[in-house]
């Protein structure tokens, strides 16, 4: 079972988030660029040909997965159907519902609008990656306690959105929570409990 995201520092900030939020003004601070730069000076990669699978190396929940994927396969498809991590859910596959939300380099993104090939060189964290063995992470615990879902299908995405929010904003205001959750639809309408869960998760993460 994957453990904690190794790029996450003790303060919950990712390296990328830290640098950009400091506004250093430097160009080229993105983690992906760093990783590409490491020991691979400007050797342009091969074209992944259409209609065939090619080797794709993904870092997911702190582990390296080498998979065969077509260029057009999304990260969501590879996570679910190739690797078997079904936490992230397909809801629209058009970047409109958020059920597929994962963290990429510490920030929430839609896995359905991310090509698997494009996720290479980044740290991907899925719902499964928030677990510590069989123990729920703080956001998951808060969602369970606050009954922050009904059918539960949007829930993995909601949890990841809140996780992403809290990693850069550990003490969000009520309005920041609402904005942070506003990229995830919940047709059952559990928003109010989601807000409460996010608030509680922030407390749990702060050790309260």
């Amino acid at each position: 079972m994957p453990r904690k995201n190794p790029t996450t520092g003790p303060d919950g900030l990712t390296r990328r988030g830290f640098l950009t939020s400091m506004g250093t003004g430097a160009i080229g601070v993105a983690a992906s660029a760093d990783l590409f730069a490491a020991g691979k000076e400007a050797v342009d990669p091969q074209v992944m040909p259409a209609g065939r699978t090619s080797k794709v190396v993904l870092r997911i929940n702190g582990e390296t997965h080498v998979v065969l994927a077509e260029p057009r396969w999304t990260l969501l498809y590879v996570l679910r159907e190739v690797i078997g991590l079904t936490g992230a859910k397909p809801g629209c596959e058009r970047g409109e519902c958020g059920a597929c939300t994962v963290l990429i380099d510490g920030v929430a993104r839609y896995a359905c609008l991310t090509l698997a090939a494009e996720a290479q060189g980044s740290e991907v964290t899925t719902l499964e990656g928030l677990m510590d063995g069989e123990t729920l992470g703080p956001v998951q615990t808060a969602f369970a306690e606050a009954d922050a879902f009904q059918c539960g299908y949007c829930t993995p995405g909601q949890i990841m959105a809140v996780e992403g929010l809290l990693r850069t904003n550990p003490n969000p205001s009520a309005e920041e929570i609402r904005r942070g959750a506003s990229g995830n639809l919940c047709r059952c309408g559990a928003y109010k409990h989601i807000f409460e869960a996010a608030h509680r998760a922030a407390e749990l993460k702060r050790g309260k």
């Binding site: 679910r80 159907e81 078997g84 991590l85 079904t86 936490g87 859910k89 397909p90 899925t126 719902l127 499964e128 677990m131 729920l136 998951q140 615990t141 969602f143 369970a144 306690e145 009954d147 879902f149 539960g152 299908y153 829930t155 993995p156 949890i159």
Partner: peptide, 21 residues
């Protein structure tokens, strides 16, 4: 009372038909 299947639903271990493989 939190749901009896809350753990499954927040951990990703609940298997929805979409997840059946």
């Amino acid at each position: 009372l939190p749901r009896v299947d809350a753990y499954e639903r927040v951990s990703g271990s609940a298997v929805y038909p979409s997840d059946v493989h």
